[in-house]
Design a protein around this nucleic acid. Structure first.
Lengths: 134, 134
DNA sequence: CTTGACCCTGTAGCTGCTACAGACACTAGA
DNA sequence: TCTAGTGTCTGTAGCAGCTACAGGGTCAAG
């Protein structure tokens, strides 16, 4: 029972356009076609797309996904290579978390500076403005 | 002492192309020109661009920056409106932090699942693969 | 035999820049 | 005065990772 692109999309929570996009950039192989020129998919493609989506959900870039798929396609399961990509990504995530945390703290400070009452001057605007010592 | 676009860029840590981009999308007003058709800037523009950059550093979108500038340009300092935008952004940041934290936890779990040794099968690939109950 | 849901290709749009190409302006040194 | 090297100008195209059309073809149900 071959799947249409719509079926595949539903099964993997992916928009049809995105499936075609993945095909275009070479993440998914060109599928076989029905008599009416419809793309037809099977369990293999379903697995591959699930893999891609899961990796994307975990924040891997498409390039990283491509690399993971390449290593995974290797008969030899290059666990070290995969571990390297995953850990690299983890470090990236940690950097982003740190950045975002710092940003939040600063943003909060700016907002709180305005909290004091109904002064005529807006402290947020002031806080966002150019620094005096520039 | 009018500033060239390069001076302005250096003073605000902004690339020249970015300054022109901000002008094109209407964040910065069209500046006056020198005899040689060079853009010339003064303290007002410097202040405005500093404001934009600071807001961008704090993660505000260009649309939000536009709104903040609009409210700030209002003679009446609409502190409530500004506070609303800033707090909305803060909530966004908190959402992102939560998402990223959850992502990190899951990513860590996937990586750790592979940590046990030199098994023939890669647990990362497995963990990324399709769920059985799908 | 028509309606509606799906599919096809190709292209343009989104955010927030960044990077050219090809031409003109200006400054410092020979 | 010439020249080299920097800056600036406009316009356009590119990046990620999709998303959204337009303008058509296909297929199943009633």
């Amino acid at each position: 029972m071959p799947l249409t692109i719509g079926d595949l999309g539903k099964a993997t929570n992916t928009k049809v356009e995105t499936v075609r996009y993945y095909e275009r950039i070479g993440l998914l192989p060109k599928p076989s076609r029905s008599t009416g020129n419809y793309r037809t998919y099977g369990a293999t493609e379903l697995g591959r797309l699930s893999f891609i989506r899961r990796a994307r959900d975990l924040g891997f870039s498409l390039d990283q996904v491509r690399a993971l798929l390449g290593l995974s396609d290797d008969g030899t399961c290059d666990c070290a290579g995969i571990d390297r990509i995953a850990n690299e990504h983890l470090r990236e995530v940690d950097r982003k978390l740190a950045d975002l945390t710092a940003l939040r703290r600063e943003l909060k400070a700016v907002i709180d500076s305005c909290d004091g009452g109904t002064v005529a001057e807006c402290r947020i605007i002031e806080a966002l403005g150019p620094t005096i010592d520039g």
